[in-house]
Design a protein around this nucleic acid. Structure first.
Lengths: 264, 264
DNA sequence: TCAGGTGCAC
DNA sequence: GTGCACCTGA
């Protein structure tokens, strides 16, 4: 028996909004130790998405056996549009290779209960290596700031070079109409910590990434006020949104190598 | 002489917004006993629309003879877009088979007066039987709630089964991605009566309807905080919006018969 | 291509 | 709180 009761339905709604453009059919995993998890390459097999909602995120959490559920995210997203932001969401599934999942939305205010039965799919499991390294450089900054920068720069060019130095983080783009550099300097706000830009660095690092993917990642902005961007030479970057007390959403993206940059 | 002065012009604007997608050319009737009335089948001849604005709705009401005016709703809607929400609207027409109608919008705040003359049309009168029965089951609920449910469910499937039992009202849909049930339980709010869901039932009734039409009816949501849905076996349902102290807008829709349900 | 919803600015 | 503009889904 799987039963997950999430009092803030809006959380699941935001999560789906943030991944539905990147992924189509994915296996959600559930276990009593890890909670609800998802790891998947994006549809074009370039980026990797990793989501965890720890058991503690849920008002009620029961997962008798480790479970994998193949879910069409377009369909799930459509169902979740039927939930109000204030609804309590409960997911239920049978223990062993269920072929459907039940979603229940409770709106306490209007005494309204909606329940949905969604068909599950068979999705071939991917075996993913998620690197668990410490990074040479990390920047923590307001998530809206990061989203704004990625959006703005994508109007200038396709590829952004991100440089983390001890002074701050620099985003550079060049395109047909010219070049752009945006620098966010290390700056800690005591009054509003969530507005700080914090550099944590062993080595300065500069890597280039396709903005197209970063702009997909920033769909997760509503999940957290801050974003944590980590980079090391020749390793995929990580863009992480911590979900307050509930887990995280992480996106991994390989840097462009020199040759890529030239052909682009 | 016909002269109707409506101090809340916004009312007429809302009424037109709510029917213009369902109807195209209709005869408006006016009489000193009934006020301003409209009965018409929708363009596809499936649903029936019935509107009444009682004489008392109007700040000034004069209707010397019973009158029928053929109106192109697209045109009337376009004219009413020229009226502000706070405008006072006056309609005038000649007594006997007028071929035009005059509309005047007075904006007291800006001392602005607009007047329009619109051509009337000859529209063949339909002879409509509007059943005046008592219904086996009626649910009164917040109109926005009803609108939200119809909209949400139409993302899952085309046909909704509505069941009224003494516990509450259940909306059920099945579609390619799964099934959905939304239950609103009988629940009377003393503090906010307009948020109550009230079941009034002699017999439990379950009928199926095409969501497409319900979603047209809910365009009338701005007319009232609450909606009254009435059903009896083998009779058209009624979806009624009472216009506070001024009349009503009612929509009638025949249920799908079993065969319809199967072919769908 | 159009309409509806959402987020942002005033 | 309202209106505009952008963006997304049908």
């Amino acid at each position: 028996m799987l039963e997950l009761r999430l009092s803030q339905g809006v959380l699941l709604k935001k999560i789906l909004e943030s991944v539905k453009d990147l992924l189509s059919n994915v296996n959600f995993g559930c276990s009593s130790s890890e909670g609800l998890c998802l790891q998947s390459m994006d549809s074009s097999h370039v980026a990797l998405v990793s989501l965890q909602l720890i058991p503690h995120s849920f008002e009620f959490f029961r997962c008798d056996r480790n479970l994998s559920m193949g879910i069409n995210l377009t369909h799930l997203s459509r169902l979740l549009k039927c939930a109000g932001n204030d609804d309590v969401i409960t997911m239920k599934a049978d223990d062993r290779s269920p072929d459907t999942i039940n979603l229940m939305f409770e709106n306490p205010k209007h005494d309204r209960i909606s329940d949905f039965e969604m068909k599950l799919m068979d999705i071939e499991a991917e075996h993913l290596q998620i690197p668990d390294t410490s990074y040479e450089a990390t920047v923590t900054m307001p998530s809206q700031e990061f989203a704004r920068i990625c959006k703005d720069l994508s109007t200038i060019g396709d590829t952004v070079a991100i440089s983390i130095t001890k002074e701050g983080v620099k985003f550079s783009v060049s395109g047909a109409i010219g070049n752009a550099n945006i620098i966010c300097r290390h700056n800690i706000s005591v009054v509003k910590p969530e507005e700080s830009t914090i550099i944590d660095m062993k080595e300065p690092v500069t890597l280039s990434f396709p903005l197209r993917y970063l702009n997909s990642f920033t769909k997760a902005t509503p999940l957290s006020n801050i974003v944590i961007v980590s980079m090391s030479h020749d390793l995929p970057m990580v863009v992480e949104y911590k979900i307050s007390g509930a887990g995280h959403m992480r996106f991994y993206l390989a840097p462009k190598v020199e040759d890529d940059a030239m052909e682009a």
